[in-house]
Every structure is written in C-alpha cells, then in structure tokens.
Design a protein around this nucleic acid. Structure first.
Length: 637
RNA sequence: GCUGAAGUGGCUCAGUUGGCAGAGCAGCGCAUUCGUAAUGCGCAGGUCGUGGGUUCGAGUCCCACCUUCAGCUCCA
C-alpha cells in the first residue's frame, strides 16, 4: 500500500508505505536530501527520519529555512556537551538551547575554565564531528529515563525529567557514547556540523535563579560550512570596528564619566549630530501639523499614582522630596502630556491634536545592563501624543506610518520590518474596544500595502501596537519606532472633548515615537555609518587645509564664506605637511576637505577631496559652496 | 542586582619573584614652507580607579568600594 503526501507547493507525492521524510526528500532530489536537516510533518517539526503517514503534509527543513539554523545549533550543543564530558568526566549537564545567533550549554564543572581551554574542547568537538555519529531518537518511560541519567550521574537531567508533566513524551538522543535528554529534532549525524567555535564562557545560575548553583555557560556558534563561520567572524570584527562607544570617543562625540554612570555626556560634536537629527524631525512635524510642548522633569506622586506608574513602574523611577511632599522624576512623558490636554476644554473641531515632546526621561536601569548609548539611565524620546476621535484613529495611524518610513529613509534605513502586536493576557478594556483598535491598526497597515508580522498577545496592556525595526548595513535589526493605541489613559485621566452633539466624549490617545530614544538612535546611526556620516549629519562638514602658512588668511576667508553659507567648517592652517593634515581629516571622517595652495589661491579655486574617495579635482569656491549646500540641504545619502 | 575579567599621562599599551613609573600617538616649543593618509628635534605631562591593610619598602600582595567590559537577570 502506498501513501500520498502533499508538499508545500501544493503538489502531491506517492511513496511506499513506511517511507520516511528523508525518503520523500530523496525522491524529490539528491541535493535536497543532502541538505535536509529536519521535516515539518503536518506542521510539526520532527527528525528527517520520521516515518510518514498517509495524507500528511510535508515540508523539508534545510539550513535556509527559518527553523534550520536552530536545529543545527542544537545538534552542535550536544556535540559541545559531549566534548566537555569527554574532557571533564565529572561535568554535570544542565541545558543547552539554540539562540538567535548561536547556542550555549550550561554545565557544572569541578574546576574553573578559561578561554585557554577552548582549543582542547574545540579539537574534541572536531573529533566528534569526524566520527559522523548518527543522532538517534528514543522515547523512554519515565522510569527508564530516570535510571539512564542516574547511571550517568546527570542529576540536573533527573530534576528536569521529574519536572515534566504526566503527558509529556520523554525523548533522548543518542550520539555515539553520548546521550542527552532532548525534544529534538536533530541532524541525522554530527558530520552535518562543519564548523563550531566557542566564543566565550560566562557564569550563569541554574534556571537563571541566583539562589541555585552557579554553572559555566559556554557560548558558541555553529555553521554547516566553514565559510559561513568565517563570514560570521568577519561580521563580528566589522561590528567591533563600528562600536559606537569606540567611535564616540575617537570622534569626540560623547563620553561617560564615573560621576554619572549610565548618563551620557554629549560633547560639542555629538551635540551637533543630536541637534541636526532633531531639526530634521521638527521640520517633518511641522509639515504634518504637529504642535510641540514641553513638560516638567519632576512631577508629584499623585500624578504617578493616577497614571499607574507608581504601582507598575516604581522600581525604575527616581524620587525626590520637595517641601516634604513626594515627587518623582518622569520615566515617561505621557502623564505630563495628559495634563496639558486637560488644561482646557476641547472641541471635536480641534481634533486631532498632535502634541510632540522631545522629553528627557530618567529610568533606573540595573547597573549590569548599561551599554554605551544603547542602554542608558537618561534619554530623550521623540515622543508625541495624538488625541483624536475613534473615527480619526485610522487616518492618524496612517499618517504616522508614513512619517516613520520617511524619517527612516532619509537617515539611511531603507529596510524596515513592521510588527503588529495584539491583546495580551492581562489587558484592560472591553473586547469591542480591542477589536476596533486592532482592526484599525491592521487597516492602516494594509492601506500602506505594508508587509507586517503579527505578534499575537504581545501588545501593551492598554492597547495594541505597531513596532518598527530598522536593519543596519550589517544586517542587524533594531527596534526603534512604535505606535500604540491607548484607551486606558484617557479613561484614567478623564479626558473629554465636546462633540457636535454638545455632549462630552472620550478621545482616543496614540503614543508614538520614531527614533525611540534619540541617544540610542544616534548609537545605531554611528554603527550603521561607522562614523562616516552623510554630509548633512556630519558634525564637521568641511575642513579647509592650507598648503603653506602664508595662506592662513586665504584659508580663513574660505572658511568664513562656507560658514556664511550655513556649512559647518574648520580650518587646519598648522605648519604641517599636507599629507599629515589630510591624514588627520580622513581619520576624523570629515566628509569634505578643501585644500588651498598658491595655485588655487591665484585662481580663486579650491581643491576638493572627499573622505574615503580621494582627490576630486579643483572647483571655484562658489561652485564648491553651491554643490555642498545643495547636498547638505537635500540630506543626500 | 548576580558571576567573571579589567582599571597605569588625553588615547593605545609595557611594567619580571614587591626595590627610583616607561613607550608610541596626541599636546606644547623650535626648525621646516612642503601638493592629496604621518617632516625633524626638543619639552612638558602620572597620588598607577578610590579608601583601608600587610611590609623597611606596594603599580605589583590582601580587604572593601567605584567604574568599565563579557555574560546572566531585568525591561520591552
């Protein structure tokens, strides 16, 4: 008797009874069979050697599929654990999951390990790969499993088995002399893992619980071929070169001081970047009829009680006392914005009200999570609160989506991923309101014909949200913008507007940020451009280099004309050779060098050199200024 | 907050078993007046993260704290 299965392209295939997913892959093509990591049978991920049943749907999973890398990494985790067990027989294994970039394995070791031990472990892993041991799945009864791991001294595995529910299937994977409790699926054989590298070790508590045993966590990466490992290592190196903390110091953009941990200091050049970004944003807000407000940094306890922050966000807030009354430093801008709305009566004719605020917020982040500009204790949000009627919600969201995409495009992010997050478990508000809000956000996205990913249950407790992720030039993604519909705050603060019926109505509120945190966004931009900013953003746009010291006045005059044209300019008239001056300007990543020697001075010209591009030939000063002014004003990439 | 590592001129780093704190770059001065990524010579610059302790003597050994880094955790 034959069985018939359907494939992802809708076609059907007939195979002999007892065929496995691998047999199906082979019948499609030898290449696919070789590349096959696992199978998805009726949507369920399992080993490629799993037998097929009649009528099943089958998808072959390879490295290129979403699930592929994780399967390989998981198998690599078993290889790592096996190698460590061979070298340290007393090691006790905890758990070794795959992560987004690699995998780790938490292991209790009788002795400390340092990176010096990595080569030995890696050599052992290579041996295991060379042994090409098959990974064999077995399902055991609870008693069999307990006996097996007891015999191997794996007391953590025993605890894990004991914590499993009655109905859970207990499966193990054998791999040569190694065996691990594991759900799978796995590669057929260790030889599929062509490259593994241990990246570092760090301490980690069992189950992340500080009261439990301290384990060693081996972080590692794995790839199906050595070239991919090399590419990954190159990417890491490139990321390290672009580290915004390094560039921030080299280009004198910002710093951190012991006196204020987690609170960034923006230097003169960093402030230019900051202000240039804000000026651009203000220009765009003005075009879209936003108003801008400013609310205080410190507000009293009553407000935070009313907003809910006192109950839900207190651990992250800073407090102070004024005239024996409790105050808090704002961690968010919305309560202040609500007070501004509430300050007067509003007619439906005024709506929508789009109130932007570049508000500096302070949040107490734990010391261990601080990370350059990416994670700070004080930052400025490019916040805005839109108050509108339910009918206006969709148009407002569309307007914001349009703004977000335009802003990202202009600053250099062409690739933007969007997620829609819907109602979470512990939410407030009625079903109808959630339904309406979620549908409205969906419609707004569909209006833009934008592809988005749905994250069911990932919304805020007060409303659904749209999140924007930008992809930088290394392919890393960063969550920046967010649009959140909020029916809760208007309720809590009793916001109203007077409708055309003369009655009071409740407006809807939208919270929205585009950069998110300006500080963090600057960090992302610095890494994206590796400090080589486009002209419009560069802190110093032009440096005028004199060839000899008798041209000091000429250089000063050129600089004055550039400045008068609105360009940010410096001069270098030091008694140095031109090569040295060029080198320094190049290292400071200044986009344009204008070099003036006797020849140029006589003709009223400047020799133009672009950062990273070399000599561009001579132009008259007027031509050069016109070109640069246009390039800067148009925010050219 | 937890685990581990680190902290020496503005920057990058050296400093042996405890025995007079060093280099390069940057800065300043002088010479040089130079054509597209480093001109030469000289000078100055440090309470070795902070506070205790051990010692005849501490950058070095011990303790506490601060900050940073890699993770964890937390937050989304």
């Amino acid at each position: 008797m034959d069985i018939t299965i359907s494939l992802p392209d809708g076609s059907q295939k007939t195979l002999p009874q007892g065929s496995t997913a691998l047999d199906a892959a082979k019948s499609i093509g030898a290449g696919l069979a070789r590349a096959a990591f696992a199978a998805k049978i009726n949507g369920h991920l399992c080993d490629i050697t799993t037998p097929l049943t009649d009528g099943a749907t089958l998808a072959i999973v390879t490295y290129k599929d979403k699930e592929g890398p994780k399967i390989l990494r998981h198998t690599a985790a078993h290889i790592l654990a096996s190698a460590v067990k061979r070298l340290y027989p007393k090691a006790i294994l905890e758990d070794g999951p795959a992560t987004d970039t690699g995998f780790f394995y938490d292991i209790m070791l009788p002795e400390a390990v340092s990176p010096e031990a990595f080569p030995a472990i890696e050599a052992e892993m290579e041996k295991i790969v060379a042994e090409a041991s098959p990974l064999v799945r077995k399902e055991l009864s609870r008693e069999e499993a307990l006996a097996l791991f007891d015999g191997r001294g794996e007391r953590f595995k025993i605890e894990t088995i004991e914590s499993l529910g009655e109905d859970d299937v207990i499966s193990i994977y054998e791999m040569g002399d190694f065996v691990d409790l594991c759900r799978g699926p796995h590669l057929q054989s260790t030889e599929g893992v062509k490259a593994i590298k241990i990246m570092n070790v760090a301490g980690a508590y069992r189950k992340g619980d500080a009261t439990r045993e301290q384990l060693v966590r081996f972080h590692a990466v794995a790839f199906p071929d050595k070239k991919l490992l090399k590419e990954y290592l190159t990417l890491l190196e490139e990321a390290k070169k672009r580290d915004h903390r390094r560039i921030g110091q080299d280009l004198d953009l910002f710093s951190f001081q012991d006196e204020a941990p987690g609170f960034p200091f923006f230097h003169a050049k960093g402030s230019i970047l900051y202000n240039t970004l804000l000026a651009f944003m203000r220009e765009e807000l003005d075009k879209r009829d936003y108003t801008e407000i400013r609310t205080p940094m410190i507000l009293n306890k009553d407000l935070w009680l009313r907003s809910g922050h006192w109950d839900h966000y207190r651990e992250n807030m800073y407090f102070t006392e004024i005239d024996e009354r409790d105050f808090a430093v704002k961690p968010m801008n919305c309560p202040g914005g609500l007070l501004v709305y509430k300050n007067g009566m509003h007619s439906y004719r005024e709506l929508p009200i789009r109130a932007a605020e570049f508000g500096m917020v302070h949040r107490h982040e734990m010391s261990g999570v601080l990370h350059g500009l990416f994670r700070v204790r004080c930052f400025t949000q490019d916040d805005a609160h839109v108050f509108c009627t339910t009918d206006q919600l969709q148009a407002e969201v569309e307007n914001i989506i349009d703004l977000v995409l335009h802003v990202y495009n202009t600053v250099g992010f062409k690739d933007v991923a969007i997620e829609l997050s819907t109602r979470p478990a512990n939410s407030i508000g009625s079903d109808e309101i959630w339904e309406l809000a979620t549908e409205t956000l969906k419609k707004a996205l569909e209006h833009h014909e934008i592809k988005y990913q749905l994250n069911p249950g990932d919304g805020a407790f007060y409303g659904p949200k749209i999140d924007f992720h930008v992809k930088d030039c290394l392919g890393r993604t960063w969550q920046c913008g967010t649009i959140q519909a909020d029916f809760s705050m208007p309720e809590r603060f009793d916001l109203t507007y007077v409708g055309d019926d003369g009655e009071k109505h409740r407006p809807v509120m939208i919270h929205r940020a585009i950069f998110g945190s300006i500080e963090r966004f600057l960090g992302i931009l610095i890494e994206h451009y590796a400090g080589n900013f486009p002209l419009w953003l560069a802190p110093v746009q032009v440096r005028v280099l004199s060839l000899s010291s008798d041209l000091l006045d000429t250089a000063a005059d050129i600089a004055a004309q550039l400045k008068a044209a609105g360009l940010r300019v410096e001069t270098d008239v030091r008694d140095e050779k031109i090569g040295a001056k060029i080198r320094e300007a190049e290292m400071m990543k200044i986009p344009v060098m204008l070099i003036v020697g006797k020849k140029e001075a006589a003709e009223g010209k400047v020799s133009v050199r672009r950062h990273g591009k070399g000599d561009q030939g001579a132009l008259t000063l007027a031509e050069a200024i016109a070109t640069l002014k246009e390039e800067s004003a148009s925010r050219k990439q």
